[in-house]
Design a protein around this nucleic acid. Structure first.
Lengths: 203, 203, 203, 203
DNA sequence: CATGAATGAGAATTCATTCAT
DNA sequence: GATGAATGAATTCTCATTCAT
């Protein structure tokens, strides 16, 4: 029994090592530019071993995205829960979203930008969609709080949520895909987006 | 005599065929995942032939972007020129931008969404930057007009331009890459983005 | 246990097969005109497999040369060591060199005749140079012994060594590359070269 | 008639332009590293045009070699004819041979070193052989003169000729194929070879 | 559990050459 | 006589993946 447990723990540990190595490489160099061999070398195992833990390269990526998505959702939840003022909660949530994207540009790319529509891999696609919906749900809740508190002229929760998401996403994706563009100071641009939208929505 | 003209036309036609095929494939599968061979097969020519029209794969991408930028710039110029009121001009320009993206999703995707960053090809990079800057310049002019007419509280032309671009881009790219998401009515969402931003900027 | 040894032996055997195939092809058709695919076909393995044993095409060539140099050096060392009289040692060494070339024409051709000059691969170049210098060192030692024994009028060790090498090489390479030329009896020609050079050098 | 002549002259002129361009490129960069396109660009004609004058790339090389061989033969003839003393004539002829090789390394390589034995191209091969024999004939005549003048102990004309050829070739080919080897001063090495051989042959 | 060995498929690109005009 | 357009075949090398052990 103790043996089995230890085995299971060791197995799980290696799985995590693989994920950690892959995450670091994917994020640093981009999914397409990282080979399975490179991941294997980083953990000092043979490439074959990775296939004992993950079906293929895409699964590796998928597992990483799932993990990171969970983190994003958790973080946003925490942030919006903490704040009393619904507007401030929304503002903080937005900032967290953008920050998250900029800190995990390759995850963000994979999930929200390039979003490879694998032909016939519908199952995976649905799962990904559900991850996205969960994050969207958090934002929606924050928006709803504002509307319920009569902070906004606009009362269509869905429309406002999508509006804000689009704004966040616009900033995040442009900053990621065009890093060489002569942007004004990034943090100011982000704040400007968030406050302009909130101001525009205000009663 | 007529022969030369016909030849020139045929040559130009093939060039366009190549561009069309490449654009479609780049969008559907991502620049990195499309081989020259695949492009060649799509147009039913040999891979070598492509190299008679484009120096290399990157040039193909570059040509696609250039085309897109030119089209977009032309359309926006026309629209902003017509309007008297600077705010209305800006509004119209924004709508034109989003419309352009939605009507030419492949062009838009390749140029603004999937656009890969080439490492160290500085010369090409500068050229691309300059093309982008031209399109950006149009928007900037419209924003400047508003600011000069004291319509906005914010007076940092660069920041406001980038803000609006990000808003437009957020809407456009999300609508393109996530067509299955349960969006509210698209045109309303677009208008909401534009007017919310403008309202938020107003004095 | 035995398994590991067998494996190691098999691996070494395949490595040798690759080397043999490559050497033969390089000689017959010239390094530049032989593709990795051709080598692979000859040994009936996939091209990829070669890359498990050799980093790239140049490494293949390098390994062939290394082998040749090692063989040649070993043989010459043995021969020159045995002789008491320095002149006789030199003579025997020269004969051994030519014999080696004629008996291993493929090795000789690849290493000393067709050897392509790689542009700017300095690191590899230095290594090759060092291998060559070792073989050259043997000859040099034999020459030095003659000079120290005051057998030669000429006292520039380097110059005399290079002279003799050139003489040996001239005979060896012509006999190998022009087998259809109406040569006089080969062994007499070889002896004539060696003794004429030695006579010419003598005090 | 005059027209025809002019045409013929023009045609011949272009043929020469092609040869000149090809020679320069082959000599500078090596046969394998020069493409037909490069040759065409140099003369500012289309690649196709070259094929109106030469059957294929090999023919181009062949024509160049033929030309150069004729030059070598002529030069050696002149030199050996001028000299009164047969030994000096031989010495001068040898120097001319080596100089020729070092000044036309790519010709020398193609003709005497790499000497690609084209499968089944016997006709071309025979021609090449005949060119070689002509040059060999010159050397033989010079050697014969020395022997007839009783300058040499050795009286086997064929053997001595081959000996000297091998010596010349040894120097020439090593200097060409191993330009990075730390040779002593080249001209001294060449002189040393020639005089050592002659001294060794002397009565 | 882990791996060494092997591979099929494919990448971008270049080349000599031909054909219709 | 000259060429623009086109191509088939080839190049080196990399990758994700599998199989026997």
């Amino acid at each position: 029994m103790g043996t089995q447990q230890r085995r299971a723990r060791e197995k799980e540990a290696l799985r995590q090592d693989i994920l950690d190595a892959a995450r670091e490489l994917f994020v640093k160099e981009g999914y397409e530019n990282v080979s399975m061999r490179r991941v294997a070398e980083k953990i000092e195992y043979s490439p074959t071993t990775i296939y004992l833990y993950f079906e293929d390269k895409a699964s590796l990526l998928y597992a990483i995205c799932e993990e990171t998505f969970a983190k994003l959702a958790k973080r946003m939840e925490a942030i919006t829960r903490d704040s009393q003022d619904p507007i401030e909660a929304l503002r903080a949530g937005c900032r967290a979203y953008v920050d998250f994207g900029l800190k995990n540009p390759n995850h963000y790319k994979v999930t929200f930008i390039n979003h490879p529509q694998h032909p016939r891999d519908d199952q995976r696609h649905l799962k990904e969609a559900s991850m996205g919906m969960k994050a969207y749900g958090n934002l929606r809740a924050a928006v709803e709080a504002c509307i319920r508190a009569k902070k906004f002229r606009q009362t269509n929760v869905e429309a406002v949520t999508q509006l804000i998401w689009a704004g966040e996403h616009g900033i995040t994706s442009l900053l990621i895909t065009m890093p060489n563009f002569p942007w004004v100071k990034k943090s100011e641009l982000i704040d400007l987006m968030i406050s302009t939208l909130i101001d525009g929505l205000r009663a």
